[in-house]
Design a binder for these strands. Structure first.
Length: 114
DNA sequence: AATGTGACTGACT
DNA sequence: AAGTCAGCCACAT
């Protein structure tokens, strides 16, 4: 019932993944942030899924602390069992249900915009 | 062109 | 707390 008139141009897509990596690079050790926060921060709200896609498939994501990105409820990436130990090594604590204790470790990139 | 698939979210149960 | 669901949007088939 709705069509999507404005899709990302190739150059926008390029800028998008570049911006995603730039933000992720600034997540401090011991903290995490979410796909949605990143998307909103770089000017593409509603593109949380694309942030996930970028971190999963974009070459270069390995050179950035992408293990510090979890979903809105603190769940780690499906199929990436190493993520939790990596976070715990940095001091990130998990709740009994296996979710990151967001109240304690969520990093909200507020003053990042400059 | 149409349909299926996610490293997602928010609302609701 | 844990599921379900509709909405989401780029991509693969």
């Amino acid at each position: 019932m709705r069509d999507y008139p404005s899709r990302m141009t190739p150059q926008q897509a390029r800028a998008f993944s570049e911006d995603v990596l730039n933000v992720v690079a600034q997540i401090p050790c011991g903290s995490v942030t979410t796909y949605g926060h990143i998307a909103a921060l770089i000017g593409w709200p509603s593109h949380a899924r694309m942030v996930g896609r970028t971190l999963r498939y974009t070459p270069g994501a390995e050179q950035v602390p992408c293990h510090r990105v979890v979903n809105a409820v603190g769940r780690t990436a499906p199929g990436w069992s190493a993520q939790r130990p990596m976070l715990e090594r940095e001091g990130v604590t998990f709740k009994a249900n296996g979710h990151v204790d967001m109240a304690r470790h969520l990093w909200e990139p507020e003053e990042l915009i400059q």
